[in-house]
Design a protein around this nucleic acid. Structure first.
Length: 273
DNA sequence: ATTTTCTCCTGCATGC
DNA sequence: TGCATGCAGGAGAAAA
């Protein structure tokens, strides 16, 4: 499930592919909708455009061209990958043919992803981007004080709070469990009851876990792959995620699991309070 | 305003 | 072997 580290890994891969600013010679759109309708002028707007950069905001990828920004979200099973000229996959919804002969596919079996266009400069007004919270890797804004202030009087579980993209972006189900484990905070604790010290620690370890995961190329669970097709390695570093019933790596007690906010959640009762 | 529930979709694991 | 069932989940949208 692509969360911030996976999306950032894909961003770096795409940026590498696009570093010489290839032109998009052809856009081959296979369907008119994924999760939402794809704009009618999608292919026309991108065709003939040069890729000038690849950015990330939250879990969204922004492929920049002079006249249009291609916005994409990987949802649950989405991926951008370099594919062979002839080959097609039934879950490839869009192909971008580049002037260097390469072909990029947006593949998404479960179709929870997004493809859209943004007018250059219109990023902050886009409906999917305008209500997003702070970037967790931005040290200037994401710290314990921010988390503390944002969580006052909130009754929702700390994990649900941490996954709320309007507060802080990029933290999904895997990294929320991992960060809370490192912070020593039980996922079900009411956000508003977190102490300042816990918020300090949570901000610190959230950044830590995301940065470590980026360095490892992300976590490959089921479908996720890097743009070059490689798997990430961070799934091997998970301390609690998907480890229900197995011994806690710190104290040896069984890792517990429950559904919280509709998502499977993992924690250690003795290491987290 | 905040919180909860529903929904989208397909692949895979499970059980009979 | 095959079918039905349930589960996984990012996040918007609607409901409470």
């Amino acid at each position: 499930m692509p969360e911030l580290p996976e999306v950032e890994t894909v961003r770096m891969g795409l940026a590498q592919i696009a570093k010489h600013q290839p032109e998009i010679t052809k856009v081959d759109l296979k369907r008119g909708d994924i999760r939402f309708p794809i704009p009618k002028n999608f292919a026309r707007a991108l065709q003939g455009q040069k890729i000038t950069g690849v950015r990330r905001r939250a879990k969204y990828l922004l492929i920049d061209t002079p006249k249009a920004i291609l916005l994409s979200h990987l949802g649950m099973t989405g991926s951008w990958r370099v594919v062979e000229a002839g080959g097609e996959d039934k879950h490839d919804h869009c192909y971008l043919e580049l002037s260097d002969g390469r072909r990029l596919a947006f593949r998404d079996p479960r179709r929870f992803g997004v493809l859209d266009l943004i007018e250059p400069g219109g990023e902050s007004r886009h409906r999917l981007l305008r209500n997003l919270g702070v970037e967790p890797l931005d040290i200037a804004v994401f710290d314990g004080e921010f988390l503390f202030n944002a969580s006052r009087k909130r009754k929702i579980a700390a994990k649900v709070f941490l996954m709320d993209q309007r507060i802080v972006v990029g933290v999904g189900n895997i990294y929320a469990s991992e960060a809370l484990f490192r912070a020593g905070v039980r996922p079900g604790r009411a956000a508003g009851r977190l102490t300042k010290e816990q918020c300090d620690r949570l901000a610190l370890v959230t950044r830590e876990v995301l940065e470590e995961a980026i360095r490892a190329g992300g976590s490959s669970i089921r479908d996720y792959r890097q743009a070059g097709g490689d798997e990430g390695a961070y799934q091997d570093a998970h301390r609690v995620y998907d480890r229900a019933g197995q011994p806690c790596l710190v104290c040896g007690k069984k890792v517990r699991s429950a559904v919280l906010g509709g998502r499977s959640t993992f924690w250690c009762d003795s290491c987290q309070k």
